[in-house]
Write a protein that binds this DNA or RNA. Structure first.
Lengths: 202, 202
DNA sequence: GTCTATAAGGTGATAGAC
DNA sequence: GTCTATCACCTTATAGAC
């Protein structure tokens, strides 16, 4: 674990995060991580034993940041309607500061889904307050009868997909430079409105 | 190019497609492709010279299948409203038959965006009939004033994202087995309704 | 066209001096 | 803890026999 203030260990961890996020497990090179950290390659093995173990720690932290970050928002003390734009705003911020996070997690899971089974098996999302609020609203016929999972996937896909597919989206849709920031700003509002509108107007 | 009926060459191409789609450029091994094709490793170099060139052909074909496949639908002789569910149905079919296609294309572009610049520079989407129809409908105030690019991203993200993030989605949302097919079936209808509803009711 | 054998270089990992 | 040197293996690619 990287919890103490050992500078060298943290430097390696940060460098590894950067390289793994960009190149993935298969594409990353221990030498490149060492160079990125400005440190000797042997140190990587001294602190983390093997490439696999270093990757494993990076992946675990990344996955937690990707999924765990929204749990407080999902369980917060506000309405489902308020939660939707907050979730989108949260992910937009996370992606802005860490553009490769989502793509990294999803790519590695796709290429090697079995290896992380234990990390994933937690029904934290399904048991969240957000899901319960939606179920209640459906029972009270306040909103359209749609499975909360569908709503959830709509929420995250509409904001996360553009970042995962960023290179393709940018070029095929001419969203280079300032256009991109504008696109994301509009995206948050439009996607949230679209979902809320769909649920309430029926 | 793989156009003639040379069996060996096609066998290699199909095997390479399978392996590259699953493992990506960095993770794929020439030996694994040879084994998959049931053929000697030297044959790969005989027909495709290098790993890079073999990959390049696979990527190009995959990208065309991923993007090019919807162009006829976008330019078809029907309304924008009819096109939306058709696009989603098309992608659902493509993903069903080729589960790794989208993830492969997007992962490789993310890890090495610069290398494929020339393939991407085509405004086929922006100049399609679908985009023109949306612009017209906006001008006539028949639908809400939303940039067509936002509509487009909503359409594709809502159906493609679940497949790209399939391993994560399946486990975190308990969509194993039959639940998955049901989820996708519902997804197509809900996502299309959501977008059309948003555009028309304002 | 297809195979075996092998070259040439890269990559993860460790030993051992300091 | 940090470094240099080096091992052992893997991977792409080619040479050359058939």
């Amino acid at each position: 674990m990287v919890e103490n203030n050992n500078t060298t260990e943290n430097q390696i961890f940060e460098a590894a995060l950067k390289v793994f996020h960009k190149k993935g497990l298969a594409g990353a090179r221990m030498q490149e991580i060492a160079d990125e950290a400005g440190i000797n390659k042997s140190m990587l093995h001294y602190y983390f034993r093997s490439k696999e173990q270093l990757f494993s720690q990076i992946f675990l932290q990344s996955f937690k940041r990707f999924i765990g970050g929204i749990l407080p928002l999902l369980n917060a003390d506000n309405t489902w309607e308020e939660k939707i734009p907050e979730i989108m705003g949260h992910y937009a911020n996370v992606m802005q500061n860490n553009p490769h996070l989502a793509g990294f997690v999803i790519s590695e899971l796709r290429q090697n889904a079995g290896a992380f089974g234990d990390i994933l098996k937690q029904n934290a999302l399904l048991n969240s307050v957000f899901f319960k609020q939606l179920q209640e609203a459906i029972q009270k016929k306040e909103i359209r009868n749609v499975h909360p999972v569908q709503i959830w996937v709509s929420v995250i896909s509409s904001i996360i997909f553009p970042y995962i597919a960023e290179p393709m989206v940018k070029v095929t849709l001419d969203l280079q430079g300032d256009n991109w920031d504008m696109f994301i700003t509009n995206r948050k509002k439009i996607a949230a409105d679209m979902i809320i509108n769909y649920l309430k107007v029926f």
